[in-house]
Amino acid sequence: MTTEPAAPSFFARAVGRALGGSLLPVAMVIVALLALWYGAAVLLNAPFARSMAADPAALGLSELIDATLSQERPVLPAPHQVLWELKKSVFDLPVTSKRSLVLHGWVTLSSTLVGFGLGALLGLLLAIGIVHVKSLEKSLMFWIVSSQTVPILAVAPIVIVVLGAIGVTGLVPKAIISAYLCFFPVTIGMVKGLTSPDRLHVDLMRTWDATPAQTFWRLRAPASVPFLFTSLEVAIAASLVGAIVGELPTGAQAGLGARLLAGSYYGQTIQIWAALFAAAALAASMVGLVGLIERLVLAAMGGRR
């Protein structure tokens, strides 16, 4: 009689395996979020919809819902409105249009990438210095950590104004703000990564009388690669935030940050949300790209660790 209870559990496991993967949980979260979002949109936009109705008392439920999900400047735009705006500003408009998110995305992306490159390089150099020179750790670490406690929103306008005064405008100031945010995770991650080799491996290099440079290139650097990629994933997302923040004080000329600012000036909530989603998609794809490179590099370095 032991087989009877076993049968459904086997079935359940089989179904679990079939649906399991990661697809089902992800899909369920998306459905739940969408439901929540639509609910919130109806609730938040209802007061305005009522105030616009000729006779609020006569407004039926389905009419009310319709009215809340199709406003031009809703308090909270419905998902399909954002999606529609995204489609329009990414695919329908020509890239040269001032409302094209491809144009603005590219502006933000270029300063993000330059800032990321600068920041990662700076972070790397700081980490190498700290690992090799004991006094640098004591003298630099305090300032490195302090630098991140200063709110970037306060620093960004200063950088823009100061650099603007000496004639440096456009991409460079934004890239610098972006680098300011993204060097930190790289430094912290790489200090950890470069000191990650076992004592055994360090001793081994010593038995061969390896020079510090040899120990660095043959032991510390390769051992730090997983740490490097983890910190680069954090850093590239941070540098996008830096680039967007850097676009806010420029008077909203171009970039996703400018779209966010312009949207909030004119109450264009749908535009804000579309820009927000474009930024999120950009960040996700950049992090994904770094992750992909990580997988390829680690596979080339012997795979499973």
Partner: peptide, 8 residues
């Protein structure tokens, strides 16, 4: 421990 470098 053998202490081989795992990436080699």
């Amino acid at each position: 421990a053998a202490a081989l470098l795992p990436w080699r």
